[in-house]
């Protein structure tokens, strides 16, 4: 157990070195949600904000509405990077070397997960900073902030493990990127950018039942300081737990397969 922690820490250091040497890719991943944020708020935000109904409407209302969705896009985009990094790593001979060493096997994956988690949290801070700069005014209490950070972390851990599984399953970089693409689109097909009840029936059903919607709803409530329904909170956390467990189990199984390449 102690060795597993030590090996994971070693692998995390390896991962941070890798990340520091592919900063341009990380910056590109970060640029996407920021461009989305600016586009939606400045180009579409006036009209979309008026359409939200209630309150003052306009851009100010829209930036408050859209920020949680943008945060999820940030996470999804970053974990797409994780899937790509894992797939790329598995093509490297050094992974075979790790398998011939007396180390905790899963530590290669934990290294990726911990590295990605730090990357995502830093990205979220930047994106949130930009949102505040263009008029997002969170009304969260201290407890609300804590809960929001907790929920974002839980979502990230869940999606990162899923992305690690995708990276292992894909075997090629392009394949990993494709597998993870739906994650970056899910916030759009949920209540991230417009309320689900403004959508046509079929899409609306999907939006109401997919995992990102309750997570974004709960996040919105926590950040703005508005009430969060118990059902929404439970479903949001439930999804995180389910995705994390499935992703972890899948990734571990894929990694421990008798690889005969």
């Amino acid at each position: 157990m102690i060795l597993a922690v030590r090996d994971s820490a070693t692998m995390l250091r390896r991962q941070l070195r890798h990340m520091s040497r592919s900063l341009s890719m990380l910056l590109m991943l970060l640029a996407v949600p920021i461009v989305f944020l600016l586009l939606f708020v400045f180009v579409l935000g006036g009209t979309l904000g008026d359409g939200l109904g209630g309150g003052t409407g306009g851009r100010a209302a829209y930036v408050a509405y859209v920020t949680p969705g943008i945060l999820l896009i940030t996470i999804a985009g970053a974990v797409q990077g994780t899937a790509i990094a894992v797939a790329l790593d598995m093509t490297e001979g050094i992974i075979a070397r790790f398998r011939t060493m007396a180390i905790a096997r899963v530590s290669v994956l934990t290294g990726h997960v911990l590295g990605s988690l730090l990357h995502v949290l830093a990205s979220l801070a930047v994106v949130l900073g930009v949102a505040v700069l263009i008029g997002f005014r969170p009304g969260a209490t201290a407890v609300g902030w804590l809960a929001a950070v907790g929920l974002l972390t839980a979502t990230t851990v869940a999606l990162v493990w899923l992305a690690v599984g995708m990276g292992l399953a894909a075997r090629t970089v392009a394949g990993a990127s494709n597998l993870a693409t739906p994650l970056t689109l899910l916030p759009l097909f949920g209540s991230g950018f417009v309320p689900a009840d403004s959508m046509p029936a079929g899409l609306r059903w999907f939006a109401e039942h997919q995992p990102f919607t309750p997570i974004m709803e709960a996040l919105r409530g926590l950040l703005l300081g508005t009430p969060v329904g118990t059902a929404t909170a439970v479903v949001a956390v439930g999804w995180c737990v389910v995705i994390a467990l499935v992703g972890y189990g899948w990734a571990k199984w894929l990694y421990n397969r008798d690889r005969t390449r």
Binding site: E92, G93, I94
Partner: peptide, 8 residues
């Protein structure tokens, strides 16, 4: 086949 970490 080489088992060197190219990034390091």
């Amino acid at each position: 086949f080489s088992a060197v970490d190219d990034f390091l």
